[in-house]
């Protein structure tokens, strides 16, 4: 297992600095929550690590430098991500979605053949995300929460060793959130997981460690209790909300 090591990561858009010299260490197998007010640079940080936006500094996964590589090359190194709005291939079935996610290493000749049956890794992922019964349904017909699970399942079959999840429980019911939390704990047994989340209740229950971003910089870092006790965090982020906030 590998961890994520970020040093002096800086992203600026036309002079506006969205991520400002962030240092971040996510050890192998961590379940790290990344929180912060809107505009803190959470998603931009993930965008930089996955190659979507240009950044300076360094972001290493294990020993491998990620910055400067193309998006699909970073993905092949074992870095997978989801998006705020669940992005699945709506016109394809659940099985096809997973099969595509599993296949970036396939040869050109293999691609020209038909899929026969359900590949083993896809079957296991279906089991894990609980969508075995929806195998042949179009992904577009899934409920919102199920689409988010499907995305996580796609990361599993893609064999991502580092999962960067952008608000995976947004819009989910309580039961679905609990199920997702358990799932993330399962996944973090063998992979490194970073979750961007606004839901404080969810964070308290499932985060192993937390990093708070504010205005593009790391404000605080530690366990949930440590971060909650941090005076600065309470001021900028938790101060105005003691109860559950975010997407409910």
């Amino acid at each position: 297992m590998s961890g994520l090591t970020i040093r002096g990561l800086t992203v600026s858009f036309d002079g506006f600095v969205a991520v400002d010299g962030v240092d971040l260490d996510v050890p192998p197998g961590d379940l790290r929550f990344l929180i912060g007010p809107n505009g803190a640079g959470k998603t931009t940080l993930v965008d930089a690590v996955t190659g979507l936006v240009k950044a300076t500094g360094s972001a290493r996964f294990g020993e491998t430098e990620l910055l400067g590589r193309e998006v699909h090359r970073i993905a092949r190194l074992g870095v997978g991500r989801t998006f705020q709005t669940a992005t699945v291939f709506e016109e394809l079935s659940v099985l096809q979605n997973l099969d595509i996610a599993a296949g970036s290493g396939r040869s050109a000749l293999g691609l020209l053949r038909r899929r026969r049956g359900v590949p083993d890794d896809v079957a296991r992922a279906l089991e894990t995300i609980g969508l075995t019964g929806r195998l042949d349904d179009l992904a577009g017909t899934l409920a919102h929460g199920q689409k988010q699970w499907l995305e996580i399942g796609m990361l599993l079959v893609q064999d991502a060793r580092l999962l960067l999840l952008d608000e995976p429980v947004a819009g989910m019911s309580h039961e679905e959130r609990d199920a997702t939390g358990e799932l993330l704990h399962q996944i973090a047994l063998e992979r490194t997981v970073v979750v961007i989340e606004h839901d404080m209740d969810f964070l308290r229950r499932y985060a192993r460690t937390v990093t708070v971003l504010h205005a593009g910089k790391v404000l605080s870092e530690g366990t949930v209790a440590e971060v909650q006790a941090d005076q600065r965090v309470q001021e900028v982020y938790l101060g105005h909300s003691t109860s559950t906030e975010g997407a409910a």
Partner: peptide
């Protein structure tokens, strides 16, 4: 089918 990761215990853990 009632769907969801919790609908069925995962025995062998994460693949």
């Amino acid at each position: 089918v009632v769907d969801g990761p919790a609908a069925r215990p995962v025995e062998e853990g994460v693949p």
